[in-house]
């Protein structure tokens, strides 16, 4: 069972760990928001039913879109790596006493 009374304030180290967990929880939200940004990009001028090969103008070129999406991807991976290294391995255990 969990400790009878949880302390109101934590010491510095556990405080850091709690905030790291928060960051970890927020990470997918960050990813979702960043990857939702392309929804705001303008569509090219040509109608969607334009004949094949027709030069479309305006909008965002695919190369830039790729750079953006893969850039976000790398940032997420690096952040996840950073957080997983910083987060104490014991957190899991203390969080769940009696885990089989």
């Amino acid at each position: 069972m969990s400790k009878a009374a949880n302390a109101l304030f934590l010491e510095r180290r556990s405080y850091r760990q709690r905030r790291l967990m928060d960051a970890l929880r927020l990470l997918p939200l960050l990813g979702a928001v960043l990857w939702a940004v392309p929804l705001l990009w303008g569509q090219p001028d040509a109608a969607s039913g334009a004949p094949e090969g027709a030069a479309v103008s305006g909008g965002v070129p695919t190369s830039r879109a790729m750079l953006y999406v893969f850039g976000v991807w790398s940032i997420l991976a690096v952040l996840a790596l950073f957080l997983s290294l910083r987060l104490d391995r014991s957190v899991d255990k203390t969080d769940a006493p009696g885990g089989n």
Binding site: W35, P38, G53, S63, M66
Partner: peptide, 24 residues
């Protein structure tokens, strides 16, 4: 290669927003 991509049929960001979010 990036220039070639932009010059191709799929060279522009054309996305059905519903599909982008829905498929994710």
């Amino acid at each position: 290669t990036l220039d070639r991509i932009d010059a191709s049929e799929i060279g522009h960001w054309q996305m059905n927003g519903g599909r982008w979010a829905g498929l994710t």
